[in-house]
């Protein structure tokens, strides 16, 4: 199988590690930033492409690590060219766009995977397994936090442009919105949220607190932040069941603590959570996609899951903007 990587930022590099552990051949790299493309292409012994159509002609699958606002165009064109697709999250900026992408891939008969990478973090797998084995009864109140600093890419910081990334709620909190559905086996029916952006316009800090209600009665509190100081990335999850409790905090379960004299410049552009693992979650994700395509087996997490995560994120944004609760009904692919 021949693969093209679109986007040569932090995700392009993270995915590349995964591709190295498959028998796929990375043929080419395409990026809006040619210098970055060359660095990644050189490391992979691949070619730099400047034409997407040219790349599509040469590959069987594409790995889209481009900024969110470009996902739709890249996915639709890849589907048309008959290429299988792995695409970074969020699936798209709107539910309609996401639906169009899913339908186009179905119609073209190509496999489409959205990188909801939390499904490849062992702590969440472990939580899911504990819940499945009835360790805590039925989940009733779920609490999740994902707190970091503002992405600080030096040039073209598209994360900070809401029209390109959807902002913190779409880009960061979507992980936990989608994960809370998966852990509680419910669909969100109502959200209420406030954000520093909505309540204190003009402030640099970006922090959102949201309350979700599910169709099975479960509640969730989801917190997302780009308001923490460098270089923090703090993640928490708690599942209170009617017969027990699961608690987890990244800060309290790190197996090593290193205290160095260093400047803030040492923090990476985009904070990524990471406990030491023999296989990092992005690599595991890429391998999963590849094996599922080659062996024609189901994906662990579907584009519809990713789309429903997006739908919750958009409802949270709307609630924060209007100051009112927002009711939703989980989107379906069939019209």
């Amino acid at each position: 199988m021949k693969v093209g990587i679109i986007g040569a930022g932090s995700m392009g590099h993270a995915h590349a590690v995964g591709w190295k552990n498959t028998d796929a051949k990375i043929v080419g790299v395409l990026s809006g930033n040619e210098a970055n493309a060359k660095i990644l292409a050189d490391a992979l012994d691949a070619k730099v492409y400047s034409s997407y159509d040219g790349l599509l002609n040469d590959v069987d699958m594409v790995d889209i690590c481009a900024p969110t606002f470009l996902h739709k165009d890249y996915v639709l064109r890849a589907a048309k060219a008959g290429c299988h697709i792995i695409c970074e999250k969020p699936i798209a900026l709107t539910v309609d766009d996401g639906l169009e992408m899913i339908r186009a891939c179905e119609a073209a008969g190509v496999r489409f995977f959205v990188g909801m990478v939390l499904h490849f973090f062992p702590e969440y797998m472990s939580m899911k397994n504990a819940i499945a084995s009835n360790a805590v009864g039925n989940p009733k109140v779920v609490r999740m936090t994902r707190a970091s600093y503002r992405p600080k890419k030096a040039d073209d910081n598209w994360f900070m442009d809401e029209s390109k990334s959807g902002g913190m709620i779409l880009d960061l909190m979507i992980h936990d919105f989608e994960m809370s559905r998966w852990l509680t086996k419910g669909e969100v029916i109502r959200v209420f949220a406030k954000s520093v952006r909505s309540e204190h316009p003009g402030e640099l800090a970006d922090h959102c607190l949201s309350i979700l209600r599910f169709d099975n009665g479960t509640m969730a509190h989801i917190e997302g932040s780009w308001a923490y100081p460098l270089p923090m990335f703090s993640v928490r999850a708690e599942v209170a069941g009617d017969d027990g409790l699961i608690e987890w905090e990244s800060d309290k379960t790190f197996p090593l603590q290193q205290y160095m004299h260093k400047s803030n410049d040492d923090a990476s552009d985009v904070a990524l959570p990471g406990s030491p693992l023999t296989e990092d979650p992005w690599a595991a994700e890429v391998k999963h996609f590849y094996n599922a395509v080659v062996n024609d087996t189901p994906f662990r997490v579907s584009p519809l899951d990713a789309l429903r995560g997006l739908q919750i994120a958009l409802a949270v944004k709307e609630s924060a903007k209007t100051g009112k609760p927002v009711s939703i009904k989980a989107v379906e692919v069939e019209a």
Partner: peptide, 9 residues
């Protein structure tokens, strides 16, 4: 704003 229910029962 509040969500309130009898869930731990």
């Amino acid at each position: 704003y509040a969500e309130v229910d009898n869930l731990f029962n």
